[in-house]
Design a protein around this nucleic acid. Structure first.
Lengths: 330, 330
DNA sequence: CAAACATGTGTGATCGATTCCACAATGAAC
DNA sequence: GTTCATTGTGGAATCGATCACACATGTTTG
């Protein structure tokens, strides 16, 4: 790999002059300019951003830790980040925790060792070990999706979103509503969405049978299985089901259809997340749009402010949401 | 940020000894060990991978250039890469070209300046400028999705896949088949899939009306519009439509349904790509699975072999495919 | 005419690690 | 009692850039 010294030698100047030429700082004579640019052209020299980073103590790289790469939510969030970061000359170093709590912490350490200028953590839990690890980082961090204490965070309004969606279901005349949730280790999706659901019911004086509430992981097939359990364990059947993600909702619809239910006539279904497919399944899925791209942009913006020192110590931002009422809810 | 020199000073040894301790190379006395590990513990020291990279001339970072982050195909491919790369201690530096040819080249240069150990390029075109740029890189490159001359590549069997899918449609009794393609700048999707389609028809003595063949971009709505044009411009209507991506196919189905067509009775539809949603739209979409995760894994594997020097100069790999026959084709 | 300024260039220190080499001390082998 | 491993340590060069500073020359300015 050709270096600045090679260029200097071949152009008959010192490396300082070459540096000045490249960075357009200080004086460089016309003659030197010509020589240098000719040599650079000939050799295809590209300055080492690496060496530069070491000297300047900044890398122009942002570490992004996400639970899983191949989910629509994540790719939309990361896309939003990239749009903002690329604008400012930053690149994204991707780290997937594969939904493993220890790996998540490991990845944070790894990013720190690479001296990234900042980290965006799309967290799925709020365990003390994770908080501890984040606190010990000597790099600005922004959390997305979970509200971490003393850390800048961008969160979705999970509680209110679930609550208004549930109210929408109630408004449609349903009083017996099933619920497909996820593990409570995921505070936002597992706890807050469930709480929003239950509070909306309580406020309207509705109650739930135990069999109506099921827990699943994040896949479509988990939704299918959870729906099967719901049907199996219910003494009386609900007339609507709220699933905390669109994928779960799609799974629920699959099972219901398989069991001969007329949708949405015999059973209404609602999801959350406004996934791509939600608009194209039949019946089109009623859901909540969380503006994921925007969340990515906002988090990147907050991080950049923190990096350039133009920020309050800790910034909290809550994303807006939007109900998408479609055919699956009547 | 605490450095190896700080550790050395506070532990009362030289930085050489600290380095030996960290890398478990050479001798370090029990006493020195204790001191050093105590100081490291107390300071939370993390060695700079950056400085290490400069010295060792390797970064353990792989650059990945993709056309767009928020597409299912890309996130699946990148996911596959990450699985392999993480195993070997590599991280992914993500670069999105946003479907812009110049930016694609720019990103390659940028990755080179960061001294990544290798680059995986998910290309959408084969323009001479791109080939030139790739050739000038002094970093191992693997191309995915397009067959670039003299560059290791992992390609999908686009021609055969389109051909067998078309034959499947013919086998189902259709002889008048519409086609929704994309711009020919994308050689794999634009040219090869169309060629597969046309060759299958030719071999079976079928012909196409001009209005039956439409071109669109990659979105669902582009599929909707293309289908509308197809209906509008056809003198006699086809009985089946092949779209070169699932998203286009879903768009086609939307338009057809809106126009009152019974699916698949009055019009069969097939897509390509085995997207997540393909199984859950109604009717379930017949499509071709390209094993995207696997393509990511294979490309990462080839790149790693090239980096460690255990590779043939140029390696070409063609991915397998699999027909998924579902309800949308009768 | 001396001082001040503009133009142009190079030396050497620095960023934070690794590694070659020299060198000490100790004990074992011949 | 040399010689030779073994154990243990640190000095200095190195990777590829930036930058403060010294220095040289030519041109203005008072």
């Amino acid at each position: 790999m050709v270096t600045i010294n090679d260029i200097a030698r071949r152009a008959g100047v010192s490396r300082t002059t070459v540096s000045r030429f490249i960075n357009e700082s200080g004086y460089v004579s016309e003659k030197a300019r010509e020589n240098i640019s000719r040599v650079i052209e000939a050799t295809g020299y590209v300055p080492s951003e690496q060496a530069k980073s070491l000297r300047l103590k900044r890398t122009k790289v942002i570490g992004v830790v996400i639970p899983k790469i191949s989910t629509e939510t994540m790719s939309r969030v990361v896309n939003g980040m990239d749009e903002v970061l690329q604008q400012e000359g930053y690149q994204i170093l991707l780290a997937s925790s594969s939904l493993d709590k220890e790996k998540e912490i490991e990845q944070l350490k790894l990013l720190e060792s690479r001296r990234v200028d900042g980290i965006i953590l799309v967290a799925t839990n709020r365990e003390p070990e994770l908080l501890e690890a984040v606190k010990n980082l000597s790099v600005p961090v922004v959390a997305v999706g979970q509200h971490l204490p003393d850390i800048s965070s961008v969160v979705y309004n999970d509680y209110e979103a679930a609550k208004s969606l549930t109210k929408e279901i109630l408004r449609a005349g349903h009083t017996k509503i099933g619920f497909i949730g996820v593990d409570e280790a995921d505070y936002s999706v597992g706890v807050l969405r469930k709480k929003g659901f239950l509070d909306a019911l309580k406020e309207n004086g509705c109650s739930v049978e135990s069999g109506w509430m099921q827990t699943a992981s994040f896949s479509i097939s988990a939704g299918e299985e959870a729906a099967a359990r719901l049907l199996d364990q219910s003494k009386t059947l609900p007339t609507a089901v709220l699933a905390v993600t669109d994928r779960l909702a799609v799974g629920v619809m699959q099972t219901l259809r398989k069991e001969g239910f007329d949708l949405p006539g015999e059973m209404a279904v609602a999801g959350m997340g406004a996934s791509d497919m939600s608009a194209y399944v039949t019946p089109a899925l009623t859901t909540v749009d969380y503006y994921y791209e925007e969340a990515g942009k906002v988090s990147a913006g907050i991080l950049l402010k923190a990096i350039t020192g133009r920020a309050k110590k800790v910034e909290k931002s809550q994303m807006d949401y939007r109900l998408l009422k479609r055919d699956s809810l009547r």
